[in-house]
Design a protein around this nucleic acid. Structure first.
Length: 344
RNA sequence: GGAGAGGUUCCCGAGCGGCCAAAGGGAACAGACUGUAAAUCUGUCGUCAAAGACUUCGGAGGUUCGAAUCCUCCCCUCUCCA
């Protein structure tokens, strides 16, 4: 899922998103509540109407912002008191409030309000935080009942503590959500911990419901976590890195703004059929970044999102054809490397 | 012709006897980025056989233990007045 925090996948139009086969995109409760305000979005016809995107949307609950804006909030059992990162104004988020906002935003899939523990965090902190998250999940589900045209996912927390993760998943499953998110990973912990936990949850979460690993990740992270049973991902990496001149390809990461591509007139990836690779050279992209032209960010974003969606599309195909391991072994090694001078 | 200001490391620009290979900014170069406070942040940025040495602050001389900083002459810019 391409990330479109503020009701826009940065730099792209909905038409361009459709061109690269985006099926669903993400929005963010906290950010859209602050600006332009969820009631305004409701009046605009929900996120779909407001941003003119007629395919599915998922909204995150703001739980992640509870962590990432940690200097600006205070957590209580009832909810979180936030200070706006924009103007310093105070706001109080409860599970009920978050559901109200997400109802107004009108996404197809919405997230329960959770508390995402930072890393590192003590076991005592994570255990306490998990307790809060589970209570909030229940309150979210209760508050959401009457508007069940939106699918509400519960979020598994528990940090890097296996037993807490298991407890989290089992308690959420009792609440019978239509899908389960895995949160609190890729926040600084060792990769081994991340993979161990998704592997652990693979045997616990129901097989007939989607599992969504929140905020992950690199192409290789996707491949490894798909092997561990994850069905859905979102990550800012393809879009954010693209805006900074760093692109993803099947052959690895390519920092197209680098001087080594100044006179490289080959496409970013000769085998890629995205709009960018079909029409423009590395040298041209490098030039656009070098002179700080907007089109550079757009073309780069188009390429990297296309690549990510192609990557997961290829994963789906391999799974259906029952040859995922083979597919994995074929590509895993390349995905992680830095292309330093490959003229195509 | 008269009066004045100034020439600093790729650029702009501070420094005005030692703590100066020389602030700061820009450019350049390399990289980071994982439920987006992100068109952001970090590092490098005179040379070398490199915890040391060497060469730099328009040029040439000089003063001094020591000069980008003081003195002399020269070269060159710019502003104002004729």
């Amino acid at each position: 899922m391409p990330v479109g925090t503020l009701a826009t996948v940065k730099t792209l139009s909905p038409a361009e998103l459709r061109d690269i086969q985006a099926q669903i995109i993400l929005g963010n409760t906290y950010h859209l509540y602050l600006r332009p305000g969820h009631e305004l979005v409701r009046r605009a016809g929900g996120l779909h109407g407001f941003m003119s995107w007629d395919r599915p949307i998922l909204t995150d609950s703001g739980g992640f912002q509870v962590m990432s804006l940690s200097g600006l909030r205070k957590i209580t059992p009832d909810g979180v008191r936030f200070q706006s990162h924009i103007d310093g104004s105070y706001h109080f988020f409860t599970p009920e409030k978050v559901i109200e906002i997400e109802n107004a935003l009108g996404a197809d899939i919405i997230m329960a309000f959770d508390e995402c523990p930072p890393y590192p965090a003590t076991r005592a902190y994570v255990e306490n935080s998990l307790k809060t998250t589970l209570e909030w999940a229940k309150r979210c589900r209760d508050a959401h009942r009457e508007t069940d045209r939106q699918a509400l996912f519960g979020i598994v927390q528990g940090g890097v503590y296996d037993d807490l993760r298991v407890r989290s998943a089992e308690e959420l499953m009792k609440m019978d959500f239509p899908g389960y998110s895995i949160g609190g990973l890729a926040v600084g912990e060792d990769k081994k911990d991340m993979f161990r936990i998704t592997d652990l949850l693979n045997d616990i979460l129901p097989k007939n419901k989607p599992r969504y690993l929140m905020g992950v990740g690199t192409p290789l992270d996707l491949l490894k976590n798909i092997r561990n049973g994850v069905d859905m991902f979102d990550c800012v990496m393809p879009t954010r890195n693209a805006r900074k001149g760093s692109l993803f390809t099947w052959k690895g990461k390519l920092i197209v703004k680098a001087a080594r591509y100044k006179e490289d007139f080959s496409p970013v990836d000769p085998d890629c059929d995205c709009y960018t690779c079909r029409n423009f050279s590395r040298a041209y992209l490098r030039h656009l970044f070098s002179v700080d032209e907007l089109l550079g960010m757009r073309l780069a974003t188009i390429h990297s999102l296309h690549f990510y969606l192609e990557l997961v599309g290829a994963c789906r195909k391999a799974i259906i054809e029952d040859r995922y391991e083979e597919f994995f072994n074929e590509h895993a090694e390349n995905l992680d490397r830095l292309i330093d001078n490959d003229t195509g």
